[in-house]
Design a protein around this nucleic acid. Sequence first.
DNA 1: GTCTATAACTTGATAGAC
DNA 2: GTCTATCAAGTTATAGAC
Lengths: 215, 215
Amino acid sequence: MGDEKGLEAKAGELAGDHSTKGRLIEAARELFLTQGFEKTSVKDILKQAGVNSGSLYYFFPKKEDLLVAVLDEYKALLWPVVIEPAFQRVSDPIERVFEILKGYRQMLEMTGFTHGCPIGNLALEMCTRSDVVRQGIADNFEGWRLAIRRCFEEVGARLHDYVDRDKLATFVLTTMEGGVMLARSYRRIEPFDAGVDMLRRYISQLLTDPDEGVA
Amino acid sequence: MGDEKGLEAKAGELAGDHSTKGRLIEAARELFLTQGFEKTSVKDILKQAGVNSGSLYYFFPKKEDLLVAVLDEYKALLWPVVIEPAFQRVSDPIERVFEILKGYRQMLEMTGFTHGCPIGNLALEMCTRSDVVRQGIADNFEGWRLAIRRCFEEVGARLHDYVDRDKLATFVLTTMEGGVMLARSYRRIEPFDAGVDMLRRYISQLLTDPDEGVA
DNA sequence: GTCTATAACTTGATAGAC
DNA sequence: GTCTATCAAGTTATAGAC
């Protein structure tokens, strides 16, 4: 094991350059995650970061610029915090996919359904705002999706030839995001588990060896 | 056909009791849908409804009470606006599920990806607020999910016995919500279509007749 | 039930000294 | 780069006449 610190703690650690700018991004990241962009005031961020107004606006002329920086940080954190630890715990490519999903399940349970996917949270709130923000969100999804796609590409002939690896990766992402949304809304893990369970059954039907991967 | 007015127009029409209270709910509904709850100011709602501050606070002491009313309205509109029209166009229970999904696809395309699922929009922004709001969101999801489940129950022996109809309905909802989120973020319909396509393949594999439903 | 006026406060952002 | 002080506008919500 050795990686059971939780995504949040790890993210805070890895992101933690203790510069003013770094502290601002980290504070904004946490607050946007728990409260959303609109609900979080600049004053909240200032207080949490222990920084004064003048410094914030020196680095980030607009509140939205801070959001762009947060999205960039998430993108940079994706592999070290989400992907690599999961890949280190599990080596089978298909199980790696489910190990990543397990990470989000743990986040839901550990936070009592207050934290889901940080990007999903921002996606619906902010994707109709400026196009840089929308692009930052899409970039994050794309990074996640490509990591999953790589897993499906690595399995080679274990998946039937006709299986579109790219579309399957997209499907995993939609299942995860939809599952997180429902779990948070119901405050129950069952909707998330139902999605993952169906996904597992579906994928096991796409395998060339009919005996493999049946639960 | 005969129902090609678009969800928004129809909703406005059906919801349209022209009372002050009704106009407030309708204005709030539209603005929460396009801008979210926090971004929408009470002043915005007042202006759109053509109502004065005193009247709003006579009916809805808090802004959040208006959101609860909006969620109740969505719940009341679900069958007449979303479910019934789809059921009227298509009679096969399984195709009815995909007809409902098609409705959301149309909404995405017609609005240039600005409108997705109204409930999903509010879910991630508001589900950590008051518990009445969260419950209103969960109730809406539950209504949708049960309509889908009913379809899967009606097919009887066409689906294998071992298929858990309830979980499958949840899976359809997660696929829809995840697909809407990605489509809006990428501003492309492909992620939504990928999800629906995978769902269709999966369900066709759960059918007892192997020749049925293959694309 | 509806009107106007406004209270009480918070918002994002700036100015200018250091 | 960082500080304090502050602006102008916007926020939710209320008071009291009609």
